[in-house]
Design a protein around this nucleic acid. Structure first.
Length: 735
RNA sequence: GCGCCUUUAGCUCAGUGGUAGAGCGUUUCAUUGACAUUGAAAAGGUCGGAGGUUCGAUCCCUCCAAGGCGCACCA
C-alpha cells in the first residue's frame, strides 16, 4: 500500500517539483537524451515579444508545441525545442514610450543611448519574467540554447544576410514613397498599416487654362479636378488626364494652380480612370504614391521639381503658402477649402473611401518621399541562375516542400505573394538593430562617388574602403524587426552550439498564429531558402486567436482577459492546456472560458482518483495473471484508443487526440473497466482479483503515456508513484 | 474591386458520400463507495436557402443569403 494520497489532485504541490525533476534530468537538451533518440525533430519557438507578460494566446502556442515535442520525444526522436525572446523593435518602443508618458516623462529629446538602455533594461526584465511563465506552463524546451534577437551572434548573422542581399542587388537605398506615422515618427511597411473606412468629401476644383497670347479657348477654359486632399494643391506639379477623356484637348497645355497661380502642365496617362471623378487627376508626387509613379513616367514633360508641403509632424510647411503654413492637415484642409471656394466647379460630395492608418495608433498615414533601405521582393538577384525572394518561397510551397496546416492557408499565402512590393526595412526608432551601413563624407575617389559613399559591411569600419576617407557616420535607422526575425530559424541554429545548424536544420514544424503569416512565415521562407538553400521548416501549423465565450477578442479594456498563470494557479496547468486544445482546430480561433477550464480540472481529478484507486488496490502478483475474456476486451479497447490517438497526433489533429484520450480514460476506463473490476477485486478468488488488478495497472500505465503530451504534470507525478523500481521519467518513456 | 473562410443541438464547436457527434447547459433518478471536481438515463437538430450530380448529399458542384477576414495606389 502506498502512502496516503490526498482525495483531490493538488496541482500546486506537484507542478514545481515535477518541472524541476525534468529540468534536472537534462533531457530538455537533445544531446542528453538516451541513445535510442537519433533522428532529430526540431521546433524553433516563435520568440514572444519581451514587452509584457504572457497572455492566454502564448499559452496556446506553448501547449501546441509542447504536445508535439513531448510526443516526438517519447517516439524516440532527438527533440530540440529552441526557446527565445524577441526585442520587437517598434512594438516595444511604442509600449515603452506609453509607459514614459504615464510617468510624465517624454522620449522626445532623450539621448538615443539613454532611451536604448532604458528600453533594454525593461525588455530584459520582461524576458526573465516570461521565462518563468513558460516553465509554469510546462514548456519542455532546451533552455541551454535559448536565444534573444539582440544577441551579438544573432546580429552577426542578420548583418551577413544584409550584406549578401546588398551584394546581390536585392537591397538598395532609394528616395521613394513610404508610409509615415506622424505620431510615432517612423516609416512603416505595407503590413504595418491598415485601411479604414472614412467618410470624407470629394472636392471639384477648376484649374484655369493658362492664357496664351493671341489664342482664346473655344470650349472650356478650365479642367475640373476631383480631390479629397485640397490642402496638398500647392504641391501639385501637373494634371494628368486619360488620353481618351473629354479633357484630351488640354494635353500639352498649361493650367494654373488655383492656390499658387503657378503654371503646371497637363499630361496624358492611362492610369487615370475615365469613369471616376472628373477624369482628371492632380499630380502631387510627394503626397501620393500613385502620383509619384505617374511623375516618374513623365519626367520629361514635367519640368517642375516635386516638393513637399507637409512636414514630419503632419503640419503644412512654408511652401504651402502663408495661409496654410503651420496648420495641421485637417485645419489646413478647411482653410484651403475656404480659399478654393471661388474655384469650385460644383459643391463637394460626400465620399466614402479607405484611408491608410497606423496599425498601432490609428493615426492617418502621411505618404512621404524619403531616403530608405528597401528589399527587392520580386526581382532576381545579380548572381546568375538565382531566383527572386518571392519565387524561392512560391516554389517551396507549390512543390509541397512546405505544407500548411490547415491547407487553405496555402492559397492565402500565394495570394499575398502575387501582390508583393518592395519592402521598406528602415525604421526611424532607436530600439532595434542598427542598419550596418556607414556613409563616407569624403568621397575622394570616383568609386566612392559612384557608390554615394555608401559602405555596407558587417563590422564597423574605421576608414572608407572606397576612398580611404575617415569621416564615416553610421546609418541612424534600425531594421524593421521582421527583417531580423525573418531569419530566426537559421540564425538561432547558426548562432548556437557548433554543429546545431547541420543537425537541426531544416526544422520540422513552425507553429505560429495565422495573423503573422505574411509578417513572419513568408519572410522566414524567403530568407531561409535564400541564405541556406534549404527550406526553414517542413510544416507550418497555424493557430488562431484565443477568444472568449462570446467570440470576443480578449483585451484589457473589455475586462475579459484570462491570465494563463492565474487560471493555471487555480485549476492547474494541465487543465488549462486541455481547455486550450480540446474543441480547437488548426487555423480557427479557440474559444476559452473559465467553465471550460474547470471542466478539465475535473478531468485531472478523475485521472488522479482513478490512479489512486488502482494504487490503493495494488498488490504484487505472485503468478502470471489469467485474463478473462472481459479483461482481454478491456486491453483491446486500450490498444484501439492508443492507436487512434497516435493516428491523430501524427496528423497534427491535437483536438481529436486529446478528446479521444479524455473520452477513453473517463468513459471507458473509469466508468466501465474500473466499475466492473470492483466486485472481482473484493472477491475471494485471489487469482481473478489479481488479473483484474493487472489489467487496471496496465491501463493506468499506458494512459499516463498517451495523456502525457497534453497533461504532462499529473501524468508524470502518477507515473512516479506507480510500482516498479527504479522508475525512469515518463517524459522519455517509450510511446 | 479581387480573394479566403464560416453557417450542424439552447451555447461553444467537431465530423462523415450510406439511419447525425462531443463538451457545457437543461430534466429525471441514484449515491458518501477512488472521485459530489460523482454515476445512470432523458429531452433537444428538416446539418443557412434553392437547384444539380448520385442508387443515396449535412458532406461534391452551381447559385443565393447572412456573418467574419485578408489583399488592393481609383484621386
Amino acid at each position: 500500500m502506498q502512502k496516503e494520497l490526498p482525495p483531490a489532485y493538488e496541482p500546486k504541490t506537484v507542478e514545481e517539483t515535477i518541472y524541476a525533476l525534468w529540468d534536472r534530468s537534462g533531457y530538455f537538451d537533445p544531446d542528453n537524451l538516451p541513445a535510442r533518440h537519433k533522428k532529430p525533430f526540431t521546433i524553433i519557438m516563435p520568440p514572444p515579444n519581451a514587452n509584457g507578460s504572457l497572455h492566454i494566446g502564448h499559452a496556446l502556442f506553448v501547449t501546441l508545441q509542447d504536445i508535439m515535442i513531448r510526443y516526438q520525444r517519447m517516439q524516440g526522436k532527438k527533440t530540440l525545442w529552441l526557446p527565445g525572446a524577441d526585442h520587437a523593435g517598434f512594438e516595444t518602443q511604442v509600449v515603452y514610450t506609453k509607459k514614459l508618458e504615464k510617468e510624465g516623462r517624454s522620449f522626445w529629446g532623450m539621448p538615443r543611448e539613454q532611451l536604448y538602455n532604458e528600453i533594454k533594461d525593461f525588455t530584459l526584465a520582461n524576458k526573465k519574467y516570461m521565462e518563468g511563465q513558460l516553465k509554469k506552463l510546462g514548456a519542455s524546451c532546451d533552455w541551454s540554447r535559448e536565444k534573444f534577437t539582440l544577441d551579438d551572434n544573432i546580429i552577426d548573422v542578420v548583418y551577413q544576410t544584409f550584406e549578401q542581399l546588398y551584394n546581390d542587388g536585392l537591397v538598395y537605398r532609394a528616395e521613394k514613397p513610404v508610409n509615415w506615422c506622424t505620431k510615432h515618427q517612423t516609416t512603416l511597411s505595407e503590413l504595418e498599416i491598415k485601411h479604414e473606412e472614412k467618410l470624407d468629401k470629394l472636392y471639384y476644383i477648376k484649374y484655369q487654362l493658362q492664357e496664351v497670347k493671341g489664342q482664346m479657348s473655344k470650349v472650356k477654359s478650365y479642367i475640373e479636378v476631383a480631390t479629397t486632399r485640397p490642402e496638398t494643391i500647392p504641391a501639385d506639379i501637373a494634371i494628368a488626364v486619360h488620353p481618351k477623356s473629354k479633357w484630351s484637348t488640354f494635353i500639352g497645355k498649361n493650367v494654373l494652380n488655383p492656390l499658387t497661380g503657378t503654371a503646371i502642365p497637363v499630361i496624358a496617362d492611362a492610369h487615370v480612370e475615365l469613369g471616376f471623378g472628373t477624369g482628371a487627376l492632380k499630380i502631387t508626387p510627394y503626397h501620393d504614391p500613385a502620383d509619384f509613379a505617374i511623375w516618374q513616367d513623365h519626367r520629361t514633360e514635367i519640368t517642375a521639381t516635386p516638393f513637399s508641403v507637409i512636414d514630419q509632424f503632419g503640419k503644412l510647411t512654408a511652401e504651402a503658402g502663408a495661409d496654410l503654413a503651420g496648420l495641421k492637415v485637417v485645419p489646413a484642409r478647411e482653410k484651403s477649402v475656404e480659399l478654393l471656394r471661388p474655384h469650385f466647379a460644383k459643391e463637394p460630395e460626400a465620399y466614402q473611401h479607405q484611408v491608410a492608418v497606423c496599425y498601432k495608433c490609428n493615426t492617418t498615414i502621411e505618404p512621404r518621399i524619403m531616403m530608405q533601405w528597401f528589399v527587392k521582393m520580386t526581382e532576381k538577384p545579380a548572381r546568375k541562375g538565382q531566383k527572386s525572394l518571392r519565387d524561392l518561397a512560391v516554389e517551396a510551397v507549390k512543390s509541397k516542400k512546405i505544407k500548411f496546416i490547415p491547407a487553405r492557408y496555402e492559397k492565402v499565402f500565394m495570394h499575398w505573394m502575387k501582390n508583393l512590393h518592395d519592402w521598406n526595412i528602415s525604421r526611424q526608432i532607436v530600439w532595434g538593430i542598427r542598419i550596418p551601413v556607414w556613409y563616407c563624407a569624403d568621397q575622394r575617389t570616383a568609386v566612392c562617388k559612384e557608390k554615394e559613399g555608401v559602405i555596407v559591411t558587417t563590422k564597423q569600419p574605421t576608414t572608407c574602403p572606397h576612398c580611404g576617407g575617415t569621416s564615416l557616420t553610421q546609418e541612424q535607422d534600425v531594421f524593421d524587426t521582421w527583417f531580423s526575425s525573418g531569419q530566426w530559424p537559421f540564425a538561432t541554429l547558426m548562432a548556437n552550439k557548433p554543429g546545431d545548424f547541420k543537425t537541426y536544420y531544416p526544422t520540422d514544424v513552425m507553429e505560429t498564429g495565422w495573423d503573422i503569416l505574411f509578417f513572419w512565415v513568408a519572410r522566414m521562407t524567403m530568407f531561409g531558402i535564400y541564405r541556406t538553400g534549404k527550406i526553414p521548416f517542413r510544416t507550418v501549423y497555424l493557430h488562431g486567436l484565443v477568444r472568449d465565450k462570446e467570440r470576443q477578442k480578449m483585451s484589457k479594456s473589455k475586462g475579459n482577459v484570462i491570465n494563463p498563470l492565474e487560471v493555471a494557479d487555480q485549476y492547474g496547468t494541465d487543465a488549462v492546456r486541455m481547455a486550450l486544445i480540446i474543441g480547437t482546430t488548426a487555423g480557427n480561433d479557440p474559444i476559452i472560458s473559465e467553465d471550460k477550464i474547470r471542466g478539465y480540472r475535473n478531468f485531472a481529478n478523475k485521472v488522479w482518483n482513478a490512479s489512486r484507486f488502482v494504487l490503493m488496490n495494488h498488490r504484487e502478483l505472485s503468478a502470471k495473471p489469467k485474463f478473462t475474456t472481459e479483461d482481454k476486451k478491456s486491453l483491446k479497447d486500450l490498444a484501439a484508443a492508443k492507436k487512434k490517438i497516435t493516428g491523430y497526433l501524427n496528423k497534427y489533429d491535437f483536438n481529436h487526440a486529446a478528446e479521444t484520450a479524455y473520452h477513453y480514460f473517463w468513459h471507458t476506463f473509469a466508468d466501465k473497466v474500473i466499475e466492473q473490476s470492483k466486485e472481482r477485486i473484493k472477491s475471494d478468488n485471489a487469482a481473478d482479483a489479481a488479473a483484474a488488478q493487472a489489467v487496471l495497472l496496465e491501463i493506468i500505465s499506458e494512459s499516463m503515456k498517451f495523456l502525457h503530451p497534453f497533461m504532462p504534470f499529473i501524468t508524470e507525478q502518477i507515473w512516479q508513484m506507480l510500482p516498479g523500481d527504479p522508475r525512469g521519467l515518463l517524459m522519455v518513456e517509450k510511446w
